[in-house]
Structures are given as C-alpha cells and as structure tokens.
Design a protein around this nucleic acid. Sequence first.
DNA 1: CAATCATTCAATAACTTTATTGAATGTTAT
DNA 2: ATAACATTCAATAAAGTTATTGAATGATTG
Lengths: 231, 231
Amino acid sequence: MNVRDFKNKIYNELASITKALANPNRLEIIELLAQCPCSVEYIANNTSLSIANASQHLQTLKSARLVITEKRGKYSFYSLANKNVFEVWNSMRELAFSQNAEIEKLMKEFRESRHNLESVTSSQLLDRIQQGKALLLDVRPREEFEAGHIASALSIPQDELIERLKELPKDKEIVAYCRGPLCAMADDAVELLNSHGFKAVRLETGFPEWKVKGFPIDNALPQGRAIGVSK
Amino acid sequence: MNVRDFKNKIYNELASITKALANPNRLEIIELLAQCPCSVEYIANNTSLSIANASQHLQTLKSARLVITEKRGKYSFYSLANKNVFEVWNSMRELAFSQNAEIEKLMKEFRESRHNLESVTSSQLLDRIQQGKALLLDVRPREEFEAGHIASALSIPQDELIERLKELPKDKEIVAYCRGPLCAMADDAVELLNSHGFKAVRLETGFPEWKVKGFPIDNALPQGRAIGVSK
DNA sequence: CAATCATTCAATAACTTTATTGAATGTTAT
DNA sequence: ATAACATTCAATAAAGTTATTGAATGATTG
C-alpha cells in the first residue's frame, strides 16, 4: 500500500475519535458517564439536553466506540468503553487547565462567588482520612454514590444537604467531593456548610479521578450498577 | 454565577481544544511538530497539504493554544505549546489502538505488505543498546535528527539509505526508528535492509515517545533547533 | 529601494454538524 | 391486546468547517 494512502486512512480513523470529542455537550456526557452507567433520560436530566438530542450525541459517541450500550428492560444504559476514554478526557482537561487562561479565570470567579477558594488534593485527603482528621462527604446523587464511591465516604446528595445538616459534626473538618473539578456540587455544598458554621473544603477533583489513581473505593451495590432516571 | 452558564462556558472552552484536534491533517501536523519546531513549508512538504492550507491549519492550532510560533528571519517556526499536547495526542492514539479494529487491521496489512511484522519496544531496545547488542538507526530527515535523537543513534535519512548501506554492519542487529508508530519510514528502512541481507527490526514507537518516557536522548545541535525546508 | 520569498488573509463553494421537530420502534405493565 | 414509556430515527434549517484560489503582508537580500 502507498504510504500516503495508508497515512490518510490512519489519520482519518484517529480523527473519527477526536471528532466525537469535539463538542461541548459530548464532553459533558463523558464526564457524567465517568461516574457510572446512565440511561439516556438521566443524561438528559443532568445536562441541558433534550432526550432526542442526548440520544443523538450518544449515538455519535457510540459509533466512535467511546461508549458502549447495554439494554436492560426499557432502559439503554450507556457507559465509557474503557479506561482509556477517561484517560484521554483527563489529559485533555489537564492540557486545557495548563494553558487556557480563560478557563482558569472562569473557575476562579466561580469559586470566589461561593467564597470558596481553598481545596484539598487527593493525596492530602488520603492522609487526612487515614489520620481520622476529616469526614468525607459524597454530595453526588444517590445512584452515583451507590455505583461506586471513595472508601469511608458518607452520602448526602447536594439537594438533601440543607435538611440533613444535623447528621454532620461541627468539630471535624468536612471534605466534600462530587463528580470532578468542573462539577459545582461540592462547591455549593461547601458554601452551604461554611455558612452554617461547619468547617468544610472541597476535594479538588472528584470520584473518577480518585478511582483512576487506584486509591481506595467502595461499591455499595454490584460493580458498575447502572442508573435510570433521577433528579 | 449560574451553574448552567458556568458549565456551558467551561465545556465550550474545553471543546475549543478538542475541535482543534478534530481533523486528520491537524493530527498529522501535531505528530510532525512532536519531532521538532518546523516551518510552514516543511510541514506542507511532509504532509499532503498546500502551503496556504497548512498555514490555515496551523492558525487553528495556534488559536486553540496547542502550538506556539516564533519568527526567525523569513521563517515562522511552529512548535507544540507544551508537553501536555503530546501527552493528549499520545493517549488519544492509545485509545484508538485499543478499540478501533479498523486501525489495527490497516497497520497489520501495511506491515505485512513490507514483510515486517516484528518490532521492538522501548524497554527492549534500551536493554539491547546497553548490552551493545543492537545498532540504532535514525531514518528521519537530517534536520529532525539534529534537533534531538535517541542517544547513540546513527543518522541515515531513509532516502539516503540505499546509497549508504556499506556504513552498516551485517553481523549486528539493526533497530531502525522514525517519527512514531504511524510513521512508515522505519518500516521502509527495515524492508530495504532485510532485502539486502541485514538483520533489522523497527522500534515500535518513535523518537517523541522515547523522549517523553525520559529515556536517554542527545541533541547534536542547540536544544529544540528549528528546521526550515527540506525533502 | 526593488525584488524575492515565506507566510497569512479573504472569499468562496462544497461539505459536515447541530438542535429541533415529530413520527417510529420496541419493551414492559395492565 | 392495549397503553405507557424509553429510545431511536428521519427530515430539516441554521451554523460551522474545509480546500482552493489568488491577492496582501512584511521581512530579508541584492
């Protein structure tokens, strides 16, 4: 085979993957699927997409083999095709953070608006948990917690937090975490906690980043449990 | 700031990077820039692009901050903005290899057509060099070799190889390498060498992958020397 | 200071991607 | 069976991307 034809074919195949990643809605879907397998409706509800549009984007991801689908009853459950998909997303996000001043600015403004600039890294958190110094709080929706969470974390979904403050100690530092560095749930939780006299900070990243580092996790329910509709 | 607006802005910024990657020609340019800083004309000559079109793609990469440019005399030299760019490219390529059967098939057919299915990994090569068992041959264009190469490698550009066979030993295994796993220069060199009675295999990957692993490299000329036109 | 030359810009036509609709499919529950 | 429901499909208009062309820019050389 001619070298030029070979290269054209190879780069076209590679670009079929980067094209599938080249859309903000699909990036958001990938970040959500990094939590656990999700139904189309769950994805639509947790983004700004209509069901048909979410389905369309999922089809695009599926034909690029970035996600796989499994039918259980009425629901189609989508999940990331393998660990490499999350790793590409992760390294892409790091690239963005390393050189896009606009992103840094947006993040900083957002956190400032919540009076919440401090955060804790994964390894700092690991130390603090092992020393019994911190209480770890998972504020993601229950289904995501149940599909897998950081070992020893307590689950209080962000929208139940205000009613369940009495379950938390005032004398211990609380580390809240959520889906990842771009997810605002932990920021909102930290703001709420601090304004009620708790001492809280957020984990810089989120559950998938913790998991991919090989740090200790728990599964309350069978591995990779899929979730349907909620929120 | 409203969470939805924040997310939309962030994912749009992130997608500005993935959009810049979403084109086969730009992926090929990135792979070339992973070798060394290059002029627009060099890039055009080493791809199937016209100068104007190469320039246009470089502008796209530049506004996504994936490449930077430096003017020296008449030439604009483009290089990758930082190490993260190569790492994203690298992990994306690994993702593609891990799940796209079409790519695997293309690679296998191409190598079979050159009677050349065997290859050597970076760590195997490191062992063989240290034991003096293998002669290492860089078959990339001279300028790329001069900008940086694997320590102890001999430079014979692929298009000079047939005239310079007498410089090579017949009793020692020759490991040829080039720009990376998608580059055909080492395959062509290995085919030529084996058909002339040498014992040759290719390095599975290429110089940038070796370098990013932190394995020993040399710079014949000042670090990151840029190259203008050739080939 | 005119010629040369590398690169960029601008305009354009062909093509691709997107969100939105509403209808179609196929599964479960009654 | 029929209804209810989750998802996908198909069509479409609006928007974005691409390669090509030829002209413009701006630096170096004679």
